[in-house]
């Protein structure tokens, strides 16, 4: 039912879900993830097809260390961009921030479309492959996801994570408690961008081709749906949401042309059925207590 190619796409969905979740964990609704995803992907596509030093071979294969280097560079460039932009946009609140980040996504999309070296509408194709099959992408995608999950889990006990939770609950109160709220929000924003950039670099190789359409308003919406339906109170929510919602349209193939209508219905009715998403703090608590009997 689910082949390795789809599984990689699901893992990419989970990674992007975490990327949207991170700013949300500080109470900031940022939809900038597709912009950083596009930046990371474009960088990887350019480097691997234009920069011979990375070692792309004529048969279309690509050395693994160069691929890993691209993951790092994609993340770094996206993070740098986030550092510059974040200082400006994070002064905005709520829906204004959401719209400003949608604007950022559109600006990046049009820029990739118009820049002289990104291949215009056709994009960049013939991206060399570090792995002979889709299964090869599973270990790096899974490793990236485990790393992101580990960081998120660590955050819950680290000072930064606690500060993020405090800013999310009440920014003003957090400021009064002496928390540098701007720095906290910026950290989450940059972390989110680094993750999106690395994911983009991975996706560029996986998709064989890269163009401006990869990071658009539509993708932003889909990623937000991952977080909302999965649950925005724990990093596991977007992971579950990303895995399920990426697989759903593919699993709905047997119903034919109505599959996107059904997909829309899930997004429409899901939040009413699960207002806190699938993964709620209560669920995690129950899961943690499971097998402990009724010991308090």
């Amino acid at each position: 039912m689910i082949d390795h190619g789809l599984l990689v796409q699901m893992l990419i969905g989970a990674l992007l879900g975490i990327s949207v979740y991170l700013p949300l964990a500080t109470g900031q609704l940022s939809l900038a993830t597709p912009a950083f995803y596009a930046v990371g992907g474009t960088l990887a596509a350019l480097l691997s097809t234009r920069w011979a030093a990375l070692g792309a071979r004529v048969d279309g294969s690509f050395p693994l260390p160069s691929f890993l280097l691209e993951l790092v560079l994609g993340g770094a460039l996206a993070g740098l961009l986030a550092l510059l932009v974040g200082r400006l946009v994070l002064r905005l609140q709520g829906i204004y921030l959401a719209i400003a980040t949608i604007a950022l996504v559109e600006i990046v999309r049009v820029a990739i479309l118009n820049l002289p070296f990104t291949g215009g509408a056709v994009g960049i194709f013939g991206i060399p492959q570090p792995f002979p099959t889709a299964a090869g992408y599973l270990p790096p995608a899974l490793a990236l996801l485990l790393l992101a999950g580990w960081v998120c889990q660590r955050l819950e006990v680290m000072a930064l994570g606690r500060a993020m939770a405090a800013v999310r609950e009440d920014e003003l109160a957090a400021r009064c408690m002496g928390i540098a709220t701007t720095r906290v929000k910026l950290s989450a924003f940059v972390l989110s961008a680094v993750l999106a950039g690395s994911t983009g670099a991975l996706a560029a190789h996986f998709l064989n081709t890269w163009n401006a359409r990869q990071g658009s308003f539509d993708t932003a919406v889909t990623m937000l749906a991952f977080v909302i339906l999965g649950g925005s109170r724990s990093w596991l929510g977007p992971v579950l949401g990303g895995l399920l919602l990426t697989a759903l349209p593919e699993l709905l193939r047997p119903v034919g042309d109505v599959r996107l209508v059904l997909f829309g219905l899930v997004i429409l009715l899901g939040p009413a059925l699960f207002p806190q998403g699938l993964v709620t703090p209560a669920l995690l608590e129950r899961l943690g207590r499971w097998g402990e009997g009724s010991r308090p």
Binding site: Q28, I95, A98, E156, A165, L284, G288
Partner: peptide
Amino acid sequence: LAGSLTSSPATTLPARPSWRERGALRLS
């Protein structure tokens, strides 16, 4: 309230992070 788009009236601050942490580990 659009300024604090994500404030949720329903949730309270974590009472027992350890249970929750264990739950998160189990779920992952």
